[in-house]
Amino acid sequence: MKRLSGFYLLAIAVAALPFIFPDNYFVTVVGVSAGLHAILAVSLNLLMGYAGQISLGHAAFFGMGAYTSAILTTRYGWNPWPTILVGAAFTGVVAYLVARPILKLKGHYLAMATLGLGIIVHIVIVQMGWLTGGPDGLGSIPSLSIFGWEVDSDERWYIVIGTLLMLVVWLALNIIDSRSGRALRGLHGSEVAAEMMGIDTAATKTGVFVLAALIASVAGSIFAHQQAFVSPDSFSFFFSIELVTMVVLGGMASTYGAVLGAIILTFLPELLVVFEDYEVMIFGGILMGMMIFLPQGLFIGLQELLRKLTRPKKTPATPVAEKKESSHGAA
């Protein structure tokens, strides 16, 4: 019960929002895109926050799912549902094939390799115009229908994506608190020690990489059906960086943090629109400022703030271990 209390709170909030703010653009339109971002951030956080493997190319898997669905439905007339599965299968296989060699790399080399992977996928999407529509993208992607219930309004998309988000959050929470989740966190903490405890670190990294890719792919397919249109811009390396930012901003190794980061980073530009020409500059400034002052991320930052406010000062803790290997972070 306690393990999932945050989950129930989140579920209640997601369910209540449309009733508190009916017909609100920020809930049904921006909210839907925040939901998709949150799904992506939660999946990336499994890989990055928990397993400590940085990826600057997550948008590629999102794009692969989206384009598989877009191509199969518009060019070959498929029903949307199987395209989600085919997209996930395709993305999963690609992720599996690249995972081993890529995840052997560490730190900045891993960052570079995943960045490169994302850019390569983006270029392929742009260049294979005969299939993908090139830079113009593909339109008229059909919407989803669930047993005759057409997902054809913003409200209905909110329900679908809200449900999917809660499902993904639930999966992530389950994983973290299990043998496999501890293996992930262990290899982040110390790769040799994890190996020595019998964890096949290479296989574990591959597993979480593929899992994160699968989730991203499904999110991509849903995105394609929801937008009814896809173009390469949505899957550029900027978006990958944005996803990483969501995870770090919310707080690495916290599922709720990832959700929070996604929500903030989705709403922030919407709010900054009023600043017009200053928008980009202010966005960059806020990003820098938050990371400088809350390097642990907002979620932990806020938690600590709450703790300080609600509890009287405690005596200083036991002396800290003299050495903390630089195993935190992604290096």
Partner: peptide, 25 residues
């Protein structure tokens, strides 16, 4: 941000680059 993790510093420099681009714009 001394002592921040590698990823955090990466995000800071990305934030800085967005900021500088915004100023240039």
């Amino acid at each position: 941000a001394r002592g921040a993790s590698v990823v955090t510093t990466i995000i800071i420099t990305i934030g800085a680059s967005i900021f500088l681009r915004g100023v240039a714009l």
